[in-house]
Structure formats: C-alpha cells, structure tokens
Design a protein around this nucleic acid. Structure first.
Lengths: 146, 146
DNA sequence: TTTTAATCAGACAATTTTATCTGATTATAT
DNA sequence: ATATAATCAGATAAAATTGTCTGATTAAAA
C-alpha cells in the first residue's frame, strides 16, 4: 500500500530527486534511472514523459538522449512533483472521506487533521531539491547495494 | 482520490462513528447506515461484515436485525478501525516509496515525515469514539440536508 | 549512410480497488 | 405456519491503478 501518494507520484519524486542529485546539464536515460531506483523501465518512462509535459523536466531524443531538470534544483520543490502527478486535492479533502468537510460542517477530526495537513504541505514545500541533494545521494547509494 | 486511507477504511470509520453516536444496545441495519451516510448499501454491508469478523462490531440476523458496537464507545478509537481494515503498515512506510527507509538508510524527508506520522497516529488513537460523539452527530445531520 | 540507442505514443494486460448482484439463511412479527 | 426483513457468502462486474509491449521517430556515432 502507498502511504499518501500514488505509486506514480512516489516514483516521480524519486526520479526527479535522482536527476537533481546528479550534475546539472547532463541527462539520464530512463534505463539508467530505472536501474538506479529499481523501478520498471517502461513505467518510469511513462511517468517521466508526463512530467516532461508538465514542464518540470525536459528530454532529448536519439542516441545519448535522456531526461534532465528543466529548472535549477534550487527552483524545484517536492510539492511541484506532487501537484503535477497526483494534484493537490488531498490537501483539501476530508481524511474520513466525508463530503464537503469544511469549518462550517466539520468532521470529528477536522481541526486536528487540518493542522497535520498544513505540516505535510510544509514538509513538501519548504526545502528545495537543492537542499535535499546530500540526503538523496546517501539514500540512492544504499539502493545499489542489494 | 482518498487522502490516506482506502475508501473501505473511510466508509468503515464513518459507519462505526455512526453506530457509536447512536444509543447503545440498539442496532442499525445496513440499509439505515447506507442512507444516513450515503454509502452504497451492498458495499457498506461488506465492510461491516469484515469489521464484524474483526470483532469490532456485532450483528444480529433476521428481521429487525442489524449492526452494533461490540464494545462501549469509550473503549474504541479510530485507529482500531484503521488497523482492522487498512492495517498499520502505512505508519511504518516511506512516504516517498523508497524500500527499507529506516534511521540507518533514511530518505530525504525521513525525519520530518516520521514526526508527522506520529502526530497522525496520535490523532487516531487519543480520543475515543465516545469523546467524538457530539461532533459526529453534528456532522451526520449535515449529510441529510442534501 | 547505416547502425545503434534513446525517447515517444498508443495500445494492451494485469492487478487492485470499488461496487453490485444473486441466492441462501436467519429470526421476527403477523 | 407464513410472510417479511434482515444478515451472510460467494460470484461477478466495473473502474482505477499499475505495469508491459510494440512500433515509430529521432539523433548520435561508427
């Protein structure tokens, strides 16, 4: 089971973090990304295509082609990837699934969830990929060792 | 899209909250629950059956049968329903989908997500259904008005 | 110019989740 | 006893998500 985000979104975040952790101006092929992150090649390929359509990354075709960030890592935050793939709807929905959960018609945990939701949003929108680079590199290294 | 929990789990929590908000020792039929919460009858029926197998609620068959809480509302917390339906795995999984995300091999947001996760768990495990009763009744009233 | 290695696009397949249908069983009330 | 209204169980269907395949296009390198 996924925690909050869809698999697409999880993989998308991983892939963009990976691109951000590598040298700027060099592209990575979907095959490289697939192997580094152990994500099915065709699947990550599809996800990268859609992120390209959203303008977050770019791609070059042909031999030695691949994917790269469209902006500087200091200009991208995890929330941007979430928005592009899963959308931001979850940050405005009732955690118990009640329709129209609002300050006027709150569910039993409306207030406590509201506070948490804000924290979650902050978690994804404060730091830039730039700032996450070191931690990303450390994590990716551990993935190879299996 | 669901926020964190599956639809089954959302519906399950709604239904158990509904049962807890009503008088003890009276059962509600799946049809009543379905209409009160606007959840497809057969679907909520299935979910209630599984919650009955988990021992959280009981059911009586035959005419004037229905579902009721197996324990006092002061003995039940939302986390119990989550555990019975979705399980607690999400409170131990990486929000970015990385495998084996641990203090030793943390993902870039491991710490911040860990804190949030704890808060979320608290949100579901501090208050009892008893304590949520008033808020539940208020919310359910608003559902009828459409 | 030909080979090669990459993205791209669309169809397809598998799996999981969500929802529905049908008939059997059960027990109350008439 | 019989009719009625409920749960129960299992099969089925529909929808969404996840994953795969195939062929076309593109561009670098031999």
């Amino acid at each position: 089971m996924t925690v909050i985000f869809s698999k697409k979104c999880e993989y998308g975040m991983q892939a963009v973090l990976y691109l951000a952790a590598n040298n700027k101006d060099t592209t990575k092929s979907s095959d490289q990304i697939s192997r580094a992150l152990k994500i099915p090649k065709e699947f990550i390929s599809k996800i990268l295509q859609s992120l390209r359509n959203s303008g977050l990354i770019f791609s070059t075709k042909g031999k030695s082609g691949g994917f790269g960030l469209a902006k500087d890592p200091s200009q991208i935050k995890l929330i941007d990837i979430v928005q592009a793939i899963d959308g931001l709807e979850m940050f405005n929905s009732c955690v118990l699934g009640f329709p129209e959960c609002s300050p006027d018609t709150p569910c039993p945990v409306h207030d406590s969830w509201g506070a948490l939701r804000t924290k979650a949003f902050e978690m994804l929108s404060t730091e830039t990929l730039d700032q996450l680079k070191d931690k990303t590199l450390t994590k990716i290294k551990t993935l190879q060792q299996e």
